[in-house]
Design a protein around this nucleic acid. Structure first.
Length: 398
DNA sequence: TCTGGGGTCCTAGGACCC
DNA sequence: TCTGGGGTCCTAGGACCC
């Protein structure tokens, strides 16, 4: 007894490009590329010519000179995503969003009121088509992983049910690249051992897979290949970090220019943080040098914050520390991400020093400890890490 | 092929605490 | 007083996904 196929994975087809074709009838039936410098999305007409997501714009135009290249309209995609997710939630309360254009839906409890998973999936596809004007593919299976593989195999505009008794027949012949979590590096490691199909990976001993791919990745992929995936559809997942970045091209940048860009990025992120009623504790500065090597520099605060001035002060400090490297190697990307997100009602101490004056972090932390006590500051840090914490922490004055 | 922008998860060493 | 082991946190890097 294995359980039934009640997990749906719903995935919009060529999402950004499909929104463009929906909104501009002249683009329908034509190859469409979203994004100029790099391909963010390609319509199926462009994919048929070899254009792929993340490909350089130059190469894409060489492959498909007649493609229409349009700039991204993130607001339109965001709205389309909201419209589709509203239909997901109208279908079942158990929805786990994976990204802007895909989600898992658990429909196991709905048989009596809404029919079989297959009937539910057919209605869902029809509603997304008529109400939002987009094509969506759906995979149905016993586990999240199999449902995701099924929707990918069904594309474009497909529906595929993997019945529990046919799982091996479905999965084992597929190339290892189909496994969720196998990218270029892992695929190459497996290929070197002559492993090309999921079935061949399943034949390995688990210990062998762990030795080859690392403990967690090896165990995880080995379990997937053997059809083990106990993860339930989880409606409680929340974003763990938010970030923003900007590619800069290759020309030299002055310190003033970089500071302006950094300020814009941090300002935008801090707004998003507050709009979402969240706080953060860790600020990560992302850099890509002139040779495209990447680096990160981070700092974790002992207390949560959503203040632009605090975040900007930390980010500026990190950037200043990296300045010699930047001068020497050049810089092609700058970004910031905020993690250790917490709730807006987490304890946020009044900062005892004017951050606009550029006070050093260490000075501020010392002042905080003086005022609230080291234990309180450390405890605030602990509680700020727990997004489920529901009571604002009051500082214990000494 | 001259390489976007938004994320997730894992690893590994050192600091620190009990 | 010295030593050891375990657990957690922080930082940096890397693979992977859409």
């Amino acid at each position: 007894m294995r359980g039934e196929a009640t997990v749906l994975h719903a995935d919009l087809d060529a999402f950004y490009a499909s929104v463009e074709q929906r909104d501009a009838p002249a683009l329908r039936g034509r190859p469409v590329i979203v994004g100029g410098g790099v391909v963010l999305a390609a319509s199926y007409e462009a994919k048929a010519r070899g254009v792929r997501t993340a490909m350089g714009g130059r190469q894409a135009r060489d492959l498909c000179p007649e493609a229409v290249v349009v700039p991204p309209r993130m607001d339109a995609y965001s709205q389309a995503s909201k419209d589709v997710f509203a239909i997901f939630r109208d279908t079942t309360p158990i929805v786990e969003g994976l990204s802007i254009d895909e989600a898992f839906l658990e429909v196991g409890g709905l048989r009596r009121i809404a029919g079989t998973p297959e009937q539910i999936a057919m209605r869902l596809r029809e509603r997304v088509r008529t109400e939002v004007g987009l094509a969506i593919s759906v995979g149905i299976a016993r586990t999240k992983f199999l449902a995701k593989v099924a929707s990918a195999v069904s594309k474009p505009n497909g529906l595929l049910l993997v019945e529990p008794e046919r799982e091996q027949e479905f999965l084992l012949p597929l190339p290892v690249e189909r496994l969720w979590g196998v990218g270029a590096v892992t695929a190459e490691k497996l290929h070197r051992l002559g492993i090309r199909t999921v079935g061949q990976l399943a034949e390995l001993e688990e210990a062998t897979a762990e030795k080859l791919l690392g403990k967690a990745t090896g165990a995880h992929l080995h379990a997937l290949a053997r059809l083990r995936d106990p993860r339930p559809v989880d409606t409680t997942r929340r974003r763990g970090s938010i970030g923003s970045q900007r590619a800069l091209g290759n020309r030299p940048r002055s310190a003033e220019e970089l500071d302006v860009i950094l300020t814009q990025i941090v300002d935008r992120l801090a707004r998003r943080l507050r709009d979402g009623d969240r706080t953060c504790r860790t600020i990560v500065l992302r850099l890509r040098y002139g040779d495209f090597a990447k680096a990160t520099r981070s700092r974790t605060l002992p207390f949560p914050t959503d203040r632009t001035s605090v975040l900007l002060t930390i980010a500026r400090g990190l950037l200043a520390a990296a300045h010699p490297e930047i001068t020497e190697r050049g810089i092609t990307l700058i970004g910031v991400s905020l993690s250790q997100l917490g709730r807006a009602d987490s304890f946020q101490p009044e900062l005892p020093i004017d951050w606009e004056d550029g006070a050093r972090l260490d000075t501020v932390l010392d002042a905080l400890r003086d005022r609230f006590g080291a234990t309180s500051v450390a405890r605030a840090a602990q509680l700020g890490r727990d997004p489920g914490w529901s009571t604002p922490l009051l500082p214990e004055h000494e």
